[in-house]
């Protein structure tokens, strides 16, 4: 029976989907009689708080114009009294850009241990414990918060928990006030959004990559279809870009762009180190290649050996079927 707080992240006026993954984690940690709460910060966020209240038992809504833009430094100031008041055994955040910006400072100020980028969380006695990927994902570390009685914080890797379904909890929304000493130290100047129509593959979570195995532009069209079915962006290894079939900004590799997707489908890519060197963050790698000895199968998680002109359309059809 534990009290768990989730700090909800939003993308502008909508909740980040990761919140519902955190809800799953929080419910599991809270156990049967435990309660899960959410904190959401922003300006004009009544709707978001109400949405959260369907899944969380309590929602602390920090609604203030000074919180209009997410700000790891300012948000920490806002949240500190809530945490300092005690009562939370675990405080969870997504290990995303905001979590990295917010959690370390907040944990120090609140005097809580912080387990970062966890793949799994559980209780070891009264202490929060988890597993995290270290050394580029080649090794897992089991970590546990030192006992202290103040509760612990954790940031959770996206995708580590399945998102909770639509809730029916009818939780309580509490209007949380900013502390009197609240004084944001960052002045936001502007937010830069990628230009419309321009895909920034460094930010893509799903990528379908094409290599020289596609022998002509027809092959590229096939792969485009697969990418669309997966909701993925298209990228390429050098030879495809050299031919001018895709822009240079799509080239993944040591001489191109470094990407950090979660899913990487490599179609007709041999898997040279020059190309693989551009892939970071240990994604789930699917390889489709006609050469069984291609090095890509040494780095992929799963693969199909076959002619891509057959495999790619079949896979696309199967995915569409699955989506229904």
């Amino acid at each position: 029976m534990k009290q768990v707080l989730v700090i909800a992240e939003r993308r502008g006026a909508v909740l980040d989907e990761g919140v519902f993954e955190l809800l799953t984690a929080a419910r599991a940690l809270a156990g049967g009689g435990g309660r899960v709460a959410a904190a959401v910060l922003g300006h004009g966020i009544g709707g978001l708080a109400a949405e959260l209240a369907r899944g969380f038992d309590r929602v602390f809504a920090f609604d203030d114009e000074r919180l209009a833009e997410p700000d790891g430094d300012g948000d920490a100031q806002a949240l500190l009294p809530l945490l300092a008041r005690g009562g939370f055994d675990a405080v969870l955040l997504a290990h995303g850009n905001l979590g990295i910006d917010l959690a370390p400072g907040l944990s120090v100020r609140a005097g809580m241990p912080l387990l970062a980028d966890c793949l799994e969380l559980h209780w070891a006695g009264q202490s929060l414990a988890g597993t995290r990927a270290v050394y580029g994902g080649k090794v897992h570390a089991r970590v546990v918060a030192a006992a202290g009685g103040t509760g612990a914080m954790a940031t959770v890797r996206g995708g580590a928990f399945a998102p909770a379904g639509p809730g029916t909890v009818a939780g309580e929304v509490v209007a949380a006030a900013l502390p009197a000493e609240f004084a944001p130290r960052r002045r936001p100047l502007r937010t830069l959004r990628p230009e419309a129509g321009e895909v920034d593959i460094t930010q893509s979570e799903r990528l379908v990559a094409v290599g020289r195995g596609i022998e002509d532009e027809d092959g590229l069209q096939l792969v485009r279809g697969l990418a669309a079915a997966l909701g993925a962006d298209l990228c390429a290894s050098r030879p495809v870009v050299d031919k001018g079939w895709l822009p240079r900004s799509c080239q993944v590799g040591t001489s191109g762009v470094t990407v950090r997707p979660k899913l990487y489908v490599a179609v007709g890519i041999s898997g040279s180190f020059q190309h693989m060197g551009g892939i970071k963050g240990s994604p789930f790698v699917v390889a489709i290649n006609k050469d069984r000895a291609a090095p890509i199968f040494g780095v992929a998680d799963v693969g199909i050996v076959g002619d891509l002109s057959e495999v790619v359309p079949a896979l696309e059809a199967a995915i569409e079927e699955q989506k229904g």
């Binding site: 912080l114 080649k138 546990v144 918060a145 030192a146 998680d301 799963v302």
Partner: peptide, 20 residues
Amino acid sequence: SRVRLEGLLLPPAGKRAEIL
């Protein structure tokens, strides 16, 4: 330290593609 490292382990799956 506020977080104790209990131990390291190698991730379960061997790193060679499962060829379907």
